[in-house]
Simulated assay, not measured.
Amino acid sequence: MRVSILALLLALGLAGCGTRPAARPPGADPPIRLTATLVKPTEVTLTWRDTQRGVAGHVVEFATNPRGPYTVLRFAPPGETTFTHPDLMPETSFYYRVRAYYGPTSRSIDVTVPGGRRAGKDATRDDDWATPRHIGGPADRHTVRDGSAAATPTDLRGTVMAPNGIRFTWTDHAGDEDGYLLESRPRGRPDFQVVAVIDPDIDSFGLITLPEERVASYRVRAFAYGRSSDLAVRKTGADPADR
């Protein structure tokens, strides 16, 4: 998963503070139940159960201090309830949490990157096209936290700008998003996966594609974090290589 510099700063800033809950009646849904199991001396498997409704997916995060900062391991789709974290530092405590996220997606578009020389009339020699930025007018300020479709991003377009680069633009209708997720479904794959985390209010973003993403469907999601699990902690064992 690739994250812009701005998005990385956003993630680090969010990690150390509490997150706003989804707009739901208090106590209406049980918390996410997270279990961490040390399956090998330096490998932890996480499993979770979440009965909250309308969840778009879950963010799996870890830290080596309960206060953070937390690092994103995976944006898991809603049907995924397990994750394995391998090759960990030995004899170290790892803290894990899983947070739900919500938000509507744009329509999907199909993009083919043909390769060869640069394409796109706006391509520049310094790759300025890839810089995340706000290019539209003020957002409509709809909430992404109540399940309404009004905050759905619209007018998603993908322009091939380089042999392995696509610039995406869209119209922002959200006013309380924690950011945007760019999601990709390469040809022949059944599901969309998050490929980039983007700051709030951004509506232009350049993606450097992996080989399997050169022919793919793309969509963008305005998202907000929801409820989090309790922390699960496991301490790794000795390094197997020392035995």
Rank of each mutant, 00 (worst) to 15 (best):
L6N: 14
T81I: 10
P31M: 11
A76P: 00
F205S: 06
R157Q: 15
C17G: 07
V233E: 12
A22L: 01
V39T: 15
T81H: 14
R141N: 10
Y102N: 01
T71Q: 13
P31V: 10
D110A: 06
L156G: 05
E91N: 11
T112S: 12
R53W: 10
R20C: 06
T236Q: 07
T105V: 03
A28G: 08
L6A: 14
T143Q: 04
P77E: 05
R24I: 06
G13F: 10
A56E: 03
S184D: 06
P163N: 12
L207S: 11
T209R: 09
A139L: 05
R234M: 03
A123G: 10
E43D: 15
G147S: 08
A224K: 02
G237R: 02
P186K: 05
G18R: 09
G27A: 03
A130Y: 12
V111E: 01
R187V: 13
G226I: 01
L156I: 14
D203C: 06
G188L: 08
V197N: 01
P30F: 08
G147F: 04
G27F: 05
A22C: 04
S204H: 02
E43Q: 15
A174M: 03
D50R: 00
V144E: 08
H134S: 04
D110Q: 08
D29A: 12
A7N: 14
V3L: 15
A196D: 11
P104I: 08
T236A: 09
S93N: 12
R141K: 10
V59H: 02
F62R: 08
G188D: 08
E80C: 04
I166P: 00
T37A: 15
A130Q: 13
Q52I: 06
L210D: 14
